[in-house]
Design a protein around this nucleic acid. Sequence first.
DNA 1: GCCAACGTTGGC
DNA 2: GCCAACGTTGGC
Length: 160
Amino acid sequence: MAKRKTHYWLLKSEPNAYSIDDLVKDRTTHWDGVRNYQARNMLRDEILVGDKVLFYHSNADPMAIVGTATVVQNGYPDHTAFDKTDKHYDEKSDPDNPRWFMVDIEIAQKFAEPITRDMLRENEITAGMMVLAKGSRLSVQPVTEDEWKAVHKLAKAKLK
DNA sequence: GCCAACGTTGGC
DNA sequence: GCCAACGTTGGC
């Protein structure tokens, strides 16, 4: 069976809602509540088991990449859209024709120190990351292999 | 708290 | 199909 090349992604979360520490505690989670079509398409079609994820804290102090995770379940319907009591309930998502999707991820590592936006901006490679672009609101973003590696170098450098 | 950027909605 | 109004995101 031909093996697909690993793809890399960045997932944003407000730590108030779900933080890296929550993921460390839970080990795995389903990435529910995404209600944006571009992000939905990636969750449904492009993000596959074995892909690697940068975990980013938005609207936080500090705003930073705080760890990594691995995708352990391909896209499947986001059941929180069917739950009237859920914050992300969407009456237009039909269980027979779901509108929203999610993947499952598992903690890989929590960085010893957060990789802040300033740190990302100062590095030649990570300075080009989508998450730094003005007005970048997409909560699921593709990351290049070079960016992935550069973030890890920053994480190691930070340990010194 | 402010507000620019962006996505969605709905009238026409 | 256009686009103004509106709501949300998210950095600062």
